[in-house]
């Protein structure tokens, strides 16, 4: 009996519970509102097709936010690396070289961010906002503002490998994104590098005195985030078999929302990969779901706002600090603290 209780207690403390609950309720609501659409498997396959690029971006961003920093440039990387990928493939016809260069260009953007932030001391919000403008502007320049069709890539193995349909049904990109989520979970929770990220986000001064190389870790972190965004760009470009200059531009806010819904603290020092995973699926399912439910696309944003609010409150209510009063928990919650810090 005692054992059972403590196990229950453990389950109750499982911090991603609220968000999984939100996702379940959301899907349940959709099934009630549009039973035809949501009882079939097609809608879920379309989620697995469209959400992975944003999920990939959100995973990288989770690491950055856990370190107490922000990166607003990832959506520009989706355009820039996508361009590098499409250009290289169209010019040389070599998909794997295109792939490597796309990842490398993403990493380059991130590396420049990292140098500006860690070495020169520019606040990350400013450095990456500037980067966002610079790299998306450069992409428009280089591509001449045109969109580029890369249909020919369907003949190469890279296409089915990353965005094929497994068994004719399941989009491969969903498995790549899942695999990346598992890898990033291990990096954040089980690797030295992730532990450095946690300590830097928690308290940079503490991190420094206990022997974390803060500067090097931040440079690596932003480089990694650029690399991950480059991978997201490849998934998107391959799925669309097309590059267009503003691709990724609409991802900035939904991807950030996915991370915060998942319970990663804006104050740093705490990040949830599982939360981000569900956060991305919640945000991505909302639009399609709201439209399919027939309540009209213009409700999407409002609903997103409501779901975000609900997730945050649930995270607080079900989160740590049982036994304290609700207002106390609200006041001590990472969200409110984060806002105080930011404000």
């Amino acid at each position: 009996m005692k054992e059972l209780l403590s196990r229950q207690d453990k389950w109750f403390r499982f911090k991603e519970l609220p968000i999984i609950f939100v996702y379940t309720v959301l899907i349940g609501a959709f099934i009630l509102a549009a039973p035809k659409v949501f009882s079939g498997y097609r809608i879920y396959m379309s989620f697995l097709q469209t959400i992975p690029p944003q999920l990939v971006l959100a995973l990288g961003l989770t690491l950055v936010i856990t370190a107490g920093e922000i990166d607003l440039s990832f959506s520009a990387v989706v355009a820039f690396s996508g361009f590098v990928f499409a250009y290289t493939f169209r010019t040389f016809g070599t998909p794997w070289v295109a792939f490597i260069l796309a990842l490398a260009s993403g990493a380059l953007v991130g590396f420049v961010n990292g140098i500006l932030i860690a070495r020169i001391g520019v606040p990350s919000i400013m450095a990456t906002l500037a980067a966002q403008f610079f790299w998306s502007g450069l992409t428009v320049q280089l591509s001449g503002g045109l969109s580029w069709n890369i249909k020919a890539i369907k003949a190469h193995f890279i296409h089915p490998l990353f965005v094929g349909r497994i068994g004719g049904i399941v989009p491969a990109q969903s498995l790549w994104a899942l695999g990346l989520a598992v890898l990033i979970w291990f990096i954040l929770n089980r690797h030295k590098f992730g532990e450095s990220i946690l300590f830097i986000g928690d308290n940079e001064e503490v991190a420094r005195v206990v022997g974390v190389n803060v500067e090097a870790t931040k440079i690596k972190l932003f480089t990694l985030n650029g690399l991950i965004a480059g991978f997201g760009a490849v998934l998107l470009t391959l799925e669309m078999i097309n590059f267009w200059t503003t691709q990724g531009a609409g991802f900035l806010l939904p991807v950030m929302a996915a991370v915060f819904i998942g319970g990663t603290s804006i104050a740093g020092g705490q990040g949830s990969i599982l939360g981000t995973f569900f956060g991305a699926y919640i945000i991505g399912s909302l639009e399609a779901g709201v439209v399919a439910s027939g309540i009209g696309g213009y409700w999407t944003r409002m609903t997103t706002g409501l779901v975000m609010g609900a997730s945050v409150v649930l995270n607080i209510v079900l989160g740590e600090g049982k036994g304290k009063s609700l207002t106390q928990r609200l006041r001590n919650s990472v969200f409110v603290k984060g806002l105080r810090k930011a404000g």
Partner: peptide
């Protein structure tokens, strides 16, 4: 002060920097 990171588990605080 500033020897330990508040939001991290105790065991991490023992070994951070030399895991």
């Amino acid at each position: 002060d500033k020897s330990l990171a508040e939001k991290q588990d105790l065991w991490r605080n023992f070994f951070i920097g030399r895991q």
